[in-house]
Design a binder for these strands. Structure first.
Lengths: 130, 130, 130, 130
DNA sequence: GTGGTCTAGACCACA
DNA sequence: GTGGTCTAGACCACT
């Protein structure tokens, strides 16, 4: 289920974060679902437990998961309430950078919009298996 | 003209690259236009010359500019000849990550599409280099 | 009567301790009152009996309660005999940390003092055990 | 200047955070001041660089400091704008716990208020040496 | 069993 | 030089 690429330039802990967020969007990970323990996830992904721990801590900071002492980590039952303006701003800035990059690679606006639609269909497609 | 933010988490040399690409898209930097020398650019932006140098080297690798020893750097007159499949793949991958992030921040597809349109209008408003 | 929050970052056994202390301050738990057994309390709070046991042991160490083998645990009839200087020191140290934190969150001294008054009115409203 | 206690039950990285916040309140660390590098601070405190790094990262998250790639960390020039409701709530909750604890140790409200005044005079006393 | 903290030591990107 | 990431391995508190 998880796609971790050790050789990627993207940090492993970020990849873990993104994977979990994506599974959440697809509704494969549902509210209150238990995540594998830090050690288990680490052995599943063949990475160091500290790396998984860092990912989980950041996910908790973002209110995606909730960690309970001595019990483990669980998907947050509350549908994300607090919106972090900084994070939105960061994401939009990155979106801009990528549009510039794609434009330089010959993509026109239409092609980008089409790709966005594809991506959104992909990452949100789980919507009915609740 | 340049917008460098030393506090950003984006490397300065990447910011320089993106600025030049954006100016090119807007047709403010035209084919064969001369770029400021590494030292001049460095003092303009108040950054280390090594940083500018790294940006120029990467731009040349991407065939955005051409550097002639002893003469300086110039915008490539050949508009986008080679298309680097790796770079396209990377950009699409990042696009995907950002869609996930924005979805988690409460954006639906429509809002993302609208933002893309805004951005494209902004970065391509020179309008004639398509 | 009890307020246990399993998601809090405060250990459950500490929450139990504080709840009992608060009930004692409010004079709801009076000297010689019998506490629920470890098992009963555990089932009341839906927590592990070991957790309750740990709380009771610590309460006994602090002379808040007295446990009689085979009889159960009771509120200590002797009101606050021994004063543990270490505990006072610890509490004052924590008080300091929180003042720093609140100052960083924009609270001035006056606001902190006001909050303290509110809290004390709340936790001591039984009013007669002073 | 720094007071780190390896034997304390408080994590080292939190102690570092609190020390820096306190120095900031006292105006000993002023906006834009450079902090010792991670490695330097680590050797000053005789702790592992990772521990200092963790403290710095948390401080940046709280907008107390700003870290610039390849340059180091600096006190945030902006007087703290964003207020984190969660952090305020947490702090008030802890304040409540301590009031209960102190009440149990025989402190009346007046004594607590006096201590708060002492603490605030202490931690904010640097206010004029700007 | 769970996660949290810390150390020692390594490698990398950036300026 | 700077900070960021990762590993391996240890210890601790909590349930």
């Amino acid at each position: 289920m998880f796609q971790i690429n050790i050789m990627s330039d993207q940090p492993i802990y970020e990849q873990i974060i993104n994977n979990i967020k994506e599974l959440s969007l697809k509704n494969i990970l549902k509210p209150n679902d238990k995540l594998p323990s830090v050690r288990k996830m680490a052995s599943l992904l063949s990475v160091n437990p500290n790396t998984v721990s860092k990912a989980y801590q950041e996910l908790e900071r973002q209110e995606v998961i909730i960690t309970v002492r001595g019990r483990g980590s669980f998907m947050n039952p509350d549908t994300d309430i607090s919106v972090d303006k900084n994070r939105v701003g960061e994401a939009v800035k990155k979106l801009r950078e990528i549009c510039i990059e794609l434009a330089h690679l010959g993509w026109n606006e239409e092609k980008i919009l089409k790709e966005i639609k594809n991506i959104n269909q992909e990452i949100r497609k789980g919507g009915k298996n609740d």
